[in-house]
Write a protein that binds this DNA or RNA. Structure first.
Length: 555
RNA sequence: GUGCCUGUAGCUCAGCUGGAUAGAGCAUCGGACUUCUAAUCCGAGGGUCAGGGGUUCGAAUCCCUUCAGGCACGCCA
């Protein structure tokens, strides 16, 4: 348990106890103690922790909040906690001021736990699968995929750190209509390469990259495919393998590696789709109309039913998705998280409904919808066109701005927010660029440590007492927050909480740096400050690892 | 037309499971380098939290409504 949690537990236990004693005495009447907030107030002068309990009890107790607060605080036994003094303020807040030394344990804890500092058992080993990117293997990865990759990978690291057992999976859309189209496009390009006048399919893939793919195929296979009956399938197989290898490589360069790559085609071949459709049919949720099979999605609140098998006998992607997610649950995952682009949000409710129909708790399928990415160069928007296949790829992005900046930028914003990605800003090596700000903090620390000539750090409680400037106390206080920040980011599935925290922590360090000299101060103080600096380094490094960003020793 | 996301400082965004005086970065203005890295720090100005109504002791946060932008509404995925 971390220090903040410990202190909070002590205080809330004592609040509970005191309230129950008051009830017994007949001094205060209420049914049960309501769930109350015990939080760190924004305003420093409002103490180390504050609670709203008195305000919550007004109705039941029929007393005004300040009166309740007075009763409560007089009943509380401060000896059981680290409380130094209590104040009643504002409309009825109770502010707790802790003894000066309450944060003494922070630095020794960090120094002891090192790369484990911030870990918790919040997830209790719950098995989680995060499926993300899952881009069509018919092209290269674009900005939306990149955002999903950064989010998914960081979230998996964060949840793992918070005590979940997380696996990452990429769903390969290697079946269905788009693959047929892909095949037709390849065929057309192949024939065009052979100098034949072959029409390009209406819904085909116009990207330049598939021309190159076909060129490579031609270099290897020559004209041999021209009269091959299985020409289209062969072209597809070769091209898909190549595309997937490229996707895998690009993601790897972005710091993202998967535990598993799952083929949609295998779902079709294994009979799993038929199996789950059979299950739904038995439940009376499937009917036939105009040769197609429909799932009664209206039964779970949708506006209309959905086709689950086309009249040509081929299941739709929806059918495949149902089977796929059933398979995820059957593989033993307790919680499934999918990261989808906003253009798929219409699919969310019916997927959850379908999972309910399949006998699973829809709550155990969580879908993070992320809004779209707009690319800018300074003030100018960089247009993307799917039709002509012209867009900036993940690979080009990493080449241009670097992995660290790209990952940090994508992780900086809430998935709900439409992201404006400024290429010029991301590659700027200046204070405008938040990723450098945080990394620079880490590098500065490394520089101090190097100058100290020390490799191990140790402090005595006496020395720790010397850390009493505002900058030092604020820094320690914020380091202490780290485990809770990780827990919250995991709980809410919001990596951007950690980038905010990283920036905040780096800022407090930079302030400390400018106000407190480490090397050259008096021996005991220097030792204490070195320990603080080292604890900061550990914390910063752990955050950056979770974000998939390097923690440089020098810059 | 229906559904989802968004609307907070000049710009980009936090804050949204209701709490005290709404925050950060950038931009603007003014200061700090004989120094452990100035890729830094300190200070100042800057707000109708899109508009309106409601619930509450208390609303940026919850509900209703209007407006604006994005996305989705296919026997595509």
């Amino acid at each position: 348990m971390n220090i903040i949690e410990k202190v909070k537990n002590e205080i809330s236990a004592e609040i509970n106890g005191a309230l129950l004693r008051l009830k017994e005495k007949g001094a205060l009447s209420f049914n049960s103690v309501p769930e109350f907030a015990l939080e760190v107030p924004r305003e420093k002068s409002h103490g180390d922790f504050a609670t709203n309990i008195a305000m919550l009890l007004t109705k039941e107790a029929k007393k005004n909040p300040r009166e309740i607060a007075t009763l409560l605080t007089e009943e509380m036994d401060s000896n059981k906690t680290k409380i130094d003094s209590i104040q009643i303020a504002g409309p009825g807040f109770i502010n707790f001021y802790l003894q000066e030394d309450w944060l003494q344990e922070v630095i020794p804890t960090v120094l002891e736990q090192v790369d484990k500092y911030g870990r918790s058992n919040f997830g209790q080993g719950r098995k989680v699968m995060i499926e993300f990117v899952s881009a069509n293997p018919t092209g290269l990865l674009h900005m939306g995929n990149a955002r999903g990759a950064a989010l998914g990978d960081s979230l998996s690291k964060i949840m793992n750190f918070a005590g979940f057992e997380v696996k990452k999976e990429f769903y390969i859309n290697d079946a269905g209509n788009q693959i047929e189209n892909f095949g037709k496009s390849l065929e057309a390009r192949y024939f065009q390469l052979l100098g034949r006048d072959f029409p390009f399919p209406e819904e085909g893939y116009h990207g330049e990259d598939i021309k190159e793919t076909v060129k490579r195929i031609h270099e290897e296979y020559g004209d041999s495919l021209e009269n091959d009956e299985n020409r289209v399938q062969k072209l597809i197989d070769i091209a898909l393998a190549e595309k997937l290898a490229a996707i895998r490589e690009d993601l790897k360069n972005f710091g993202v590696e998967y535990d598993n790559w799952y083929s949609e085609k295998s779902l079709h071949q294994s009979g799993m789709i038929q199996e789950s459709m059979e299950y739904l049919r038995e439940k009376g949720l499937i009917y036939e109309n105009e040769g197609a099979l429909w799932l009664k999605t209206t039964e779970f609140g949708e506006e209309k039913d959905e086709v689950i098998q086309r009249s040509n006998g081929i299941p739709t992607y929806f059918a495949a998705d149902i089977a796929y997610h059933k398979d995820k649950f059957q593989r033993g995952f307790d919680l499934l998280i999918n990261i989808w682009g906003a253009d798929h949000h219409g699919h969310v409710a019916r997927m959850k409904g379908a999972m309910g129909a399949m006998g699973y708790d829809p709550e155990n399928l969580q879908i993070i919808i992320m809004q779209l990415v707009r690319l800018f160069r300074g003030k100018d928007i960089v247009r993307m066109s799917k039709r002509t296949g012209k867009y900036i790829t993940l690979n080009e992005l990493v080449d241009e701005v670097g992995k660290d900046a790209a990952r940090y930028f994508f992780s900086m914003r809430s998935p709900d927010s439409h992201l404006d990605f400024d290429l010029d800003l991301a590659k700027e090596e200046s204070s405008d660029n938040p990723v450098y700000y945080v990394q620079y903090g880490h590098a500065r620390i490394c520089s101090i440590i190097k100058a100290s000539g020390k490799t191990t750090f140790d402090v005595t409680p006496e020395n720790l007492k010397l850390l009493n400037t505002e900058e030092e106390k604020a820094l320690i206080r914020r380091i202490a927050d780290f485990p809770e920040e990780v827990r919250l980011a995991a709980k809410n599935m919001e990596p951007h909480k950690l980038t905010n925290y990283a920036h905040d922590l780096a800022s407090l360090f930079h302030s400390f740096y400018n106000n407190c000299k480490v090397i050259g101060s008096e021996a005991d103080l220097m030792e204490a400050r070195l320990a603080l600096v080292y604890a900061t380094k550990i914390t910063l490094r752990n955050i950056l690892i979770l974000l998939g960003v390097e923690a440089p020793e020098r810059m």
